[in-house]
Design a protein around this nucleic acid. Structure first.
Length: 269
DNA sequence: ACGTGATCCTGGAAGC
DNA sequence: TGCTTCCAGGATCACG
């Protein structure tokens, strides 16, 4: 289940293999992803990859005339392998490179996406996104301003892509624990002081995860497809019934916005 | 405008 | 052992 750090680590992992390479061919074995894969992506054939960037959890492969947009959904994996390497189940798309390698997209649950945006245009999916969490555009003032009067839970608030992008369920849980805020608390009833703590916690937990190569639960493989990475230490996520590391109180779980939520009833108020 | 909830999909785990 | 059921997850869309 790739969150922002996993996508960033994927970007870093695949970039050296893709940059300055010509796209010889794009093979779409199954276009039934989150949205049907549009024929426009074939416009990238014959073009050279000049940049690979990330926006939220989207990867953008720039070929000059436009960008291929990739989203890993929750079960998507990218591997860079030899183009003639035998395919396995759910290998939906190949981007075949001049080097003989290919970027192969595998996604069992097909929640991922492969789309196209022409040069200068911004796909509607990307046009309304909030700021990147690791930039200065995401700060305490923004959380304080946008949360005014909001009755929905603070956890739902920080997972809202209009507020800030890239905060998924795992890191939302962890950041709220780190800042001592009860995830059920109404967003409008969190003080500015505590929003400062939360802002810092979000930045810290995401940055640390990127450093460590991404938190790796069951669905993430690094770009070379090899395991051999270690899951980042999670303090509340998935730990219901276990003791809080700080105070030994039992970690509770509750569903918020249809998402499993974990917190320490003693440390988080 | 705001908030809640259904929905997409599959594999792995848990339950019977 | 083999079946069924449940669950996970991001993001959109429909509805109250």
């Amino acid at each position: 289940m790739p969150e922002l750090p996993e996508v960033e680590v994927s970007r870093l992992g695949i970039s050296p293999w893709l940059l300055n390479q010509t796209i010889n061919k794009i093979i779409v074995r199954d276009k039934r992803l989150r949205w049907p894969v549009p024929d426009e992506i074939f416009l990238a054939e014959g073009k050279t990859i000049v940049n690979i960037r990330r926006r939220a959890k989207y990867l953008l492969i720039d070929v000059g005339d436009g960008e291929i947009i990739l989203h890993l959904g929750m079960s998507g994996k990218l591997r860079v392998i030899d183009a003639d390497f035998p395919t396995i189940k759910h290998d939906h798309i190949d981007i075949v490179l001049g080097s003989g390698k290919c970027l192969r997209f595998n996604d069992p649950r097909r929640f991922g996406a492969c789309l196209w945006q022409p040069k200068g245009a911004t796909h509607t999916l990307l046009s309304k996104l909030g700021p990147e969490p690791l930039t200065d555009d995401f700060d305490t003032d923004r959380l304080v301003a946008l949360s005014k009067g909001k009755k929905s839970p603070v956890k739902t608030f920080i997972m809202d892509n209009d507020v800030v992008v890239g905060v998924g369920n795992i890191y939302a849980n962890e950041a709220l624990f780190m800042s001592g805020i009860d995830p059920r608390r109404a967003a409008g009833r969190v003080s500015a002081k505590r929003y400062a703590l939360l802002t810092a916690a979000i930045k810290e937990v995401l940055a640390k995860a990127i450093e460590q190569g991404g938190t790796t639960l069951k669905d993430f493989a690094q770009s070379d497809g090899n395991p051999g990475y270690f899951a980042q230490h999670l303090r509340v996520y998935g730990r219901a019934g276990q003791e809080c590391e700080i105070c030994s109180t039992e970690i509770k779980s509750v569903v918020i916005g249809q998402r499993n939520t974990f917190y320490c009833p003693n440390c988080q108020k």
